[in-house]
Simulated assay, not measured.
Amino acid sequence: MRVAIAGAGAVGRSIASELVDYGHDVILIERDPTKVEPAQVPQAEWVNADACELASLEEIQVQDCPVVVAATGDDKVNLVVALLAKTEFGVARVVARINDPRNEWLFNEAWGVDVAVSTPRVLAALVEEAVAVGDLVRLMRFRGSETNLVEITLGEQHRLVGSPVAELSLPRDTALVTILRGERVIVPTPDEPLEANDELVFVANDEAETELRELISHRE
């Protein structure tokens, strides 16, 4: 798959390296010539251009990229890149980096953003997930459907330990998608018994998440 990444800073280069390793064709677009360093990701195609300019995106043939990633350190630039990619070139999937959490409300479909990634929010969620046992933690939000990926780690004395999955009385619009048990990834079945330290990963909308939190958090 051909992927265009706007911004060749540390974030853009890291994404490019990962995608190249997965076998994708990556184009790194960088406006600052001092940051154009092909040796950093030699398998990627490097372009010194302004991703906010239509002419640059036309030359790169962004319309042939199923995915565009706006990964610069400037939220305004990322929004412009997202909007151009979606409205002018019909890119199917636009992923945009949020640098300032205060701007998160702007990163939506109106600006051509399909997936918005806020590094501070992701890090906060990971920290919370690492230290919270028995509490429901939101890991990420799927903007297209206003649905969330949430997780709870069962403590030693949680009332659900020893119970089969079938006894989970889940709210409407909620699904248990997997159970993480050590190095194992378990596809839930009704008869699967829950164990202490299991990480239960759910998909739920906002209303269901609130009900789920009341249902299973802090229940020893």
Rank of each mutant, 00 (worst) to 15 (best):
V69G: 08
V95E: 00
T119V: 15
T210A: 15
W105G: 12
I186Q: 03
L170I: 11
D75M: 06
G112E: 06
E45M: 15
R102Q: 15
V67N: 04
V177G: 04
R93K: 07
D21W: 07
A6V: 01
T87P: 00
V127F: 10
I60Q: 03
I60L: 05
S163K: 14
V67T: 13
H218A: 10
R31G: 09
E37T: 14
L168K: 03
E220I: 12
G12I: 07
L215M: 08
E214N: 15
Q40A: 15
N197P: 04
R159L: 12
S169F: 04
V165M: 05
A44S: 08
I5A: 00
V94S: 01
A196V: 05
V122N: 05
R2T: 08
V36G: 06
P171K: 02
P188S: 04
G134M: 06
Q43N: 12
D191K: 06
E167V: 13
E53V: 13
G112C: 07
A208I: 02
F202V: 02
V26S: 02
T119G: 14
D75E: 04
A166D: 07
D25C: 10
Q40C: 12
A82N: 01
D100N: 14
G9R: 10
E209N: 10
V131L: 09
V11N: 08
F202L: 09
I152V: 11
A16I: 07
G144M: 02
M1A: 14
A124H: 12
S169K: 12
P164N: 05
E59C: 04
E167L: 13
L83V: 05
R138M: 15
E151Q: 13
P33T: 07
